[in-house]
């Protein structure tokens, strides 16, 4: 969980939740196997059939903008993607991703320096991404979100502890 290594899939700016998982599918089922067959369909129809376990999505600014649908990070995770590294994320998508156990990294500098197919390594605790021997830095993930990630998402987190980490005093970032 703390170090993720994978092959890059690169996308542009403003990838909306409609592109990640079109609204028309989400009302019919909450079965993730079924929904994941359409992951990123609006941005790249080939993605679902080609993505493999551990791959990492790299994107521009405002990734995950649009609706509050949690199916968006869920299908990305279910498709095997281990992390998303973007210039910036939409707010609700950001919360949802940690809640479902998908790590997100805000690292604007990486974008221009990778292409689809490159292999990168993301070190969550150190706040560092490595690509072809070069290092790029990001603000490490806040502690309480890391706790949720390490527990495997918010559902497992509560199941395990019977309370939420934020109910204890939180150190401000």
């Amino acid at each position: 969980m703390e170090t993720l290594k994978g092959k890059v899939w690169k996308f542009g700016d403003d990838v909306s939740t409609d592109l990640i998982i079109p609204g028309k599918y989400k009302f019919k089922t909450i079965d993730l196997g079924e929904l994941s067959r359409h992951v990123m369909e609006g941005a790249d129809p080939q993605f679902a059939s080609r993505v493999s376990k551990g791959d990492i999505i790299v994107a521009g600014k405002n990734f995950g903008c649009g609706s509050s649908r949690e199916q968006a990070p869920l299908v990305i995770k279910h498709a095997g993607v281990s992390a998303v590294v973007a210039k910036s994320f939409a707010r609700i998508f950001y919360r949802n991703s940690f809640n479902v156990g998908l790590p997100l990294v805000e690292c604007p500098d990486l974008y221009e320096n990778v292409e689809t197919g490159d292999v990168i390594e993301v070190r969550l605790l150190e706040g560092r991404v490595e690509s072809m021997g070069k290092a790029f830095y990001f603000k490490p993930i806040p502690g309480f979100l890391m706790t949720i990630l390490q527990d495997g998402g918010l559902v497992e987190h509560y199941k395990k502890r019977g309370s939420f980490v934020w109910e204890e005093p939180i150190k401000s970032q």
């Binding site: 509050s68 649908r69 949690e70 609700i92 919360r95 949802n96 809640n99 479902v100 309480f144 998402g153 918010l154 559902v155 509560y158 309370s163 939420f164 934020w166 109910e167 939180i170």
Partner: peptide
Amino acid sequence: TGIGSTDMAAVFASGKLW
């Protein structure tokens, strides 16, 4: 403000959110 489903489950369970 808008939140996702699991955040909402946390609110339904505890009445609070960060």
